Amino acid sequence: MKNMNQLITIAFFVLSTNFFAQDKQDQQNEIVAVWITADETKIEIYKEGNVYLGNPINSKGERNTKIEVLNLEYTNGKWVGKIYSKKRGKLLDVECLVEGDNLLLEVTTRFISTELEWNRAKS
């Protein structure tokens, strides 16, 4: 009977660990989508390995892989990395957070931060 209780405890632990790991993975991937910026540009964010990349969508609805807008990693419940600033012509630090159908971006250059909001494109 003691062995049966130990076996049940071990099985429960393995199953619950897998469940919580899947939940964390789902949370990390909630950024994977097509997003619409304030100027109506569509950016597709996708996962490649452990990195989340963002590329613009061209007029044909295809991802333009020649232009990388975002390069992010998931850390401590948010995505952190670099965003390309077309206005400045360089990469800036960015932190992203998904809230429902909104992507909140905090872009930092030196000591100045700017907040942006992108919306999830409807399928």
Rank of each mutant, 00 (worst) to 15 (best):
M1N: 09
M1E: 07
M1R: 01
K2N: 10
M4Q: 09
N5F: 12
N5Y: 15
I10A: 09
A11D: 05
A11G: 04
F13M: 15
F13W: 09
F13A: 14
F13C: 11
V14N: 06
T17W: 08
T17E: 13
N18T: 08
N18I: 13
N18H: 04
F19N: 05
F19P: 00
F20Y: 10
F20P: 01
A21S: 14
D23S: 15
K24E: 11
K24S: 09
Q25T: 07
Q27G: 00
Q28Y: 08
E30R: 12
V32A: 08
V32C: 10
A33F: 02
W35P: 00
W35S: 01
T37K: 04
T37P: 02
A38E: 15
I43T: 01
I43R: 00
I45M: 01
Y46T: 02
K47V: 03
G49Y: 09
G49V: 04
N50Y: 05
N50Q: 11
N50I: 13
V51M: 09
V51C: 06
Y52I: 04
Y52E: 04
G54S: 11
G54A: 09
N55P: 10
P56M: 03
P56C: 07
P56I: 04
I57L: 04
S59N: 15
S59G: 11
R63F: 04
N64P: 00
N64K: 13
T65V: 14
K66V: 04
E68F: 03
V69G: 00
L70W: 00
L70R: 00
N71S: 15
N71K: 15
L72I: 07
E73V: 14
Y74Q: 02
N76L: 08
G77N: 09
K78D: 04
V80D: 07
V80H: 02
I83N: 00
K86R: 14
K86P: 04
K86F: 14
K87T: 11
R88H: 11
R88N: 12
G89C: 05
L91I: 07
L91N: 12
L91R: 13
L91A: 10
L91E: 15
D93V: 05
D93T: 06
E95I: 10
E95R: 05
E95N: 08
C96E: 02
L97F: 03
L97P: 00
L97H: 08
V98G: 00
G100D: 05
G100E: 05
N102W: 10
L103C: 05
L104F: 09
V107T: 02
T108N: 05
T108G: 01
T108M: 05
T109M: 09
T109W: 10
R110C: 04
F111S: 11
F111R: 13
I112F: 10
S113N: 03
W118M: 06
N119H: 15
N119I: 07
R120G: 01
R120P: 00
R120L: 06
K122G: 01
S123C: 02
